[in-house]
């Protein structure tokens, strides 16, 4: 019979303080970026996005001399509000991302463990992945116009995390002490980041869609809504993000059930968290099916993906605070 008493909590307080300061710095930096993006959205000029077009149709470039190309369907108009501040915003967001990464690394080093063991850490990590997904979309698909729509939820989440969810850096309960935390939680956090960008794109899509409808009715639209990119473009981006997030989510849930099999003695036990992960999965699966079903594309599919996002948020906040289950680490 030995009861070992951990004489000291193994937390490096210096690093832990650095990490706490980094959270605040991160919030300031993202707020600056948000300002830039909002400015761009409101006061920028609507210009075509370079690099999104497949071919300058019909034009003979040097390398394709003599080649006549014919595309049956026009690609959606790729125009968005642009301003030099938007480019600054992108750089500032990248800086915020680096700070966020540094925060997570220092917190992990401070506690000498994988840095996602409580709600505070989850939120920070989700924001990191959300911003990463946004930066990816901004560079790959020129989707910098989503900046404001992604940074608003990110700042809200960070605010909630600092104000209400903060907990000191420290070791986790034994059930979380497994390498599966790196696999299961990372996959789900990354999926959540992708879903977050998709949710932002979907909301933007709905606004742009109603702008387009109003325009076609002859109404005059002004303000930020008037300068949004075309709904098709936003819809595509939202879809791409879900296509990225959905397999990650599936993998994360399966990794979780492998871990549950190891830690709790069953791989699926209808714990509230498991139930809501399942519901989220089913709703996003429904979204993917809806896009392939006649009469469900466009706005209807967009609403389904928003329902999925609502389930995701409920799974994160509702389940942890309203229900008691095996995933209560609040």
């Amino acid at each position: 019979m030995v009861h070992v008493l951990a004489a000291e909590t193994a937390v490096d307080t210096g690093l832990s303080a650095v990490s706490d300061n980094l959270v605040l710095a991160m919030i300031v930096v993202y707020a600056v970026a948000l300002f830039c993006f909002v400015f761009e959205a409101a006061y920028g000029r609507r210009e075509s996005l370079k690099g999104t077009r497949l071919v300058a149709v019909g034009a003979s470039e040097g390398e394709s001399e003599g080649l006549t190309v014919n595309l049956r369907a026009r690609e959606p108009e790729a125009k968005a509000s642009r301003h030099v501040l938007g480019r600054v915003g992108l750089g500032v967001t990248a800086l915020g991302f680096v700070l966020s990464l540094a925060q997570i690394v220092t917190r992990g080093l401070a506690a000498d463990r994988w840095p996602w063991g409580n709600m505070f850490e989850f939120v920070i990590a989700i924001c990191l992945c959300g911003v990463a997904a946004f930066l990816f979309a901004a560079f790959r698909y020129k989707a910098h116009y989503l900046g404001a729509f992604v940074l608003v939820p990110v700042l809200l989440l960070l605010g909630i995390a600092v104000r209400w969810l903060y907990s000191e850096s420290g070791p986790v309960v034994p059930a979380l002490d497994s390498y599966w935390i790196a696999i299961h939680v990372s996959a789900l956090i990354m999926a959540t980041g992708a879903f977050m960008v998709s949710g932002s794109a979907t909301i933007t899509y709905l606004v742009a869609h109603s702008t387009e409808t109003r325009r076609s009715l002859g109404e005059k639209v002004s303000g930020i809504a008037a300068k949004l990119p075309s709904p098709e473009l936003l819809d595509r981006l939202a879809h791409r993000m879900i296509v990225l997030g959905f397999p990650l989510w599936t993998f994360g849930v399966i990794a979780g059930s492998i871990w549950a099999d190891e830690a709790w003695g069953r791989f699926w036990g209808w714990d509230p968290k498991e139930v809501w992960s399942f519901i989220t999965w089913v709703v996003y699966a429904a979204y993917l099916h809806a896009r392939a079903t006649a009469g469900w594309q466009g706005k209807k599919a967009a609403w389904i993906s928003l329902v999925g996002f609502a389930c995701l948020l409920f799974n994160f906040f509702g389940v942890n605070y309203l229900f008691s289950g095996l995933h209560s680490y609040a």
């Binding site: 036990g269 714990d271 089913v282 079903t293 389930c311």
Partner: peptide
Amino acid sequence: MRTALVLLFLLALGAIPGSLLPQRGV
């Protein structure tokens, strides 16, 4: 596909009470 869509929604909807009410299996 439409049938599958409706059934997927029912599957999600039906799972909700199990998280709100205590379950014998748990």
